[in-house]
Simulated assay, not measured.
Amino acid sequence: MGPLLAMVYATVAVQSLVTGLAGEVVGTFVAAAVLSAATTVYARGPGRPPRLVLILPVTSIAVGLLVGAVLVSPRNGPADG
């Protein structure tokens, strides 16, 4: 598994876990902090992309996964109208 995919999974997992325990705002904040720390450590290596290049795709994928989960959740009512 590549490092970007690992960061996506880790970000979604942390956000889901902390959101369940402490709420959406805290879950999002903690996931952002974990993502920031992970990309900082990974970007330190020679020949690796800058931190910003790592954060943007991971953030957009993680947010997209969560939006997709909300759209298909039973709370939103039946899909047929």
Results as ranks from 00 to 15, higher is better:
13 A>N: 01
16 S>W: 03
23 G>F: 05
12 V>H: 01
37 A>C: 09
19 T>S: 11
55 I>F: 06
41 V>M: 09
5 L>H: 08
25 V>I: 10
36 S>K: 07
72 V>D: 12
39 T>Q: 07
19 T>Q: 10
61 I>L: 13
72 V>N: 08
15 Q>N: 12
81 G>P: 00
70 V>F: 07
12 V>E: 02
44 R>H: 09
34 V>A: 14
50 P>R: 15
62 A>D: 00
36 S>R: 10
59 T>Y: 02
59 T>H: 04
56 L>H: 09
55 I>W: 09
70 V>A: 13
8 V>H: 00
40 T>W: 10
34 V>G: 11
43 A>C: 08
14 V>I: 05
60 S>P: 03
19 T>V: 01
46 P>L: 15
66 L>M: 14
62 A>H: 00
79 A>S: 12
41 V>F: 04
58 V>P: 01
2 G>M: 01
47 G>S: 03
29 F>L: 15
44 R>Y: 07
63 V>N: 11
61 I>R: 06
56 L>F: 08
66 L>N: 15
55 I>M: 13
4 L>A: 13
51 R>P: 01
81 G>V: 02
79 A>C: 06
33 A>S: 10
3 P>N: 14
39 T>C: 14
63 V>K: 10
48 R>Q: 12
8 V>R: 01
69 A>L: 08
71 L>R: 10
80 D>T: 05
45 G>F: 04
71 L>W: 05
71 L>N: 08
73 S>Q: 07
75 R>S: 12
48 R>D: 00
9 Y>M: 10
56 L>T: 14
32 A>H: 05
21 L>F: 08
14 V>R: 01
65 L>C: 07
74 P>R: 11
34 V>P: 09
45 G>Y: 05
14 V>F: 01
27 G>P: 04
12 V>T: 05
61 I>P: 02
23 G>M: 06
9 Y>G: 13
78 P>C: 06
4 L>W: 06
19 T>W: 02
35 L>K: 02
41 V>I: 12
42 Y>A: 15
67 V>M: 12
51 R>S: 11
65 L>P: 00
47 G>E: 03
22 A>G: 11
29 F>P: 06
37 A>Y: 11
38 A>L: 13
7 M>V: 00
24 E>N: 13
47 G>K: 03
35 L>T: 01
67 V>W: 04
44 R>L: 12
64 G>L: 03
4 L>C: 09
24 E>I: 12
69 A>I: 02
12 V>C: 05
2 G>K: 01
68 G>Y: 00
16 S>H: 06
49 P>K: 15
32 A>Y: 07
53 V>L: 12
73 S>M: 07
41 V>N: 04
75 R>I: 08
44 R>D: 11
57 P>I: 03
76 N>W: 04
78 P>G: 12
78 P>M: 09
2 G>A: 10
69 A>V: 03
16 S>A: 14
54 L>N: 01
45 G>N: 11
31 A>C: 02
81 G>Y: 00
40 T>M: 13
64 G>M: 03
28 T>I: 10
61 I>T: 12
18 V>W: 02
65 L>F: 04
33 A>K: 06
59 T>S: 14
26 V>T: 13
68 G>N: 01
8 V>G: 01
57 P>V: 07
32 A>W: 07
61 I>Y: 09
55 I>C: 11
10 A>L: 12
42 Y>M: 13
33 A>N: 05
44 R>W: 06
40 T>F: 09
10 A>V: 06
37 A>T: 12
74 P>W: 09
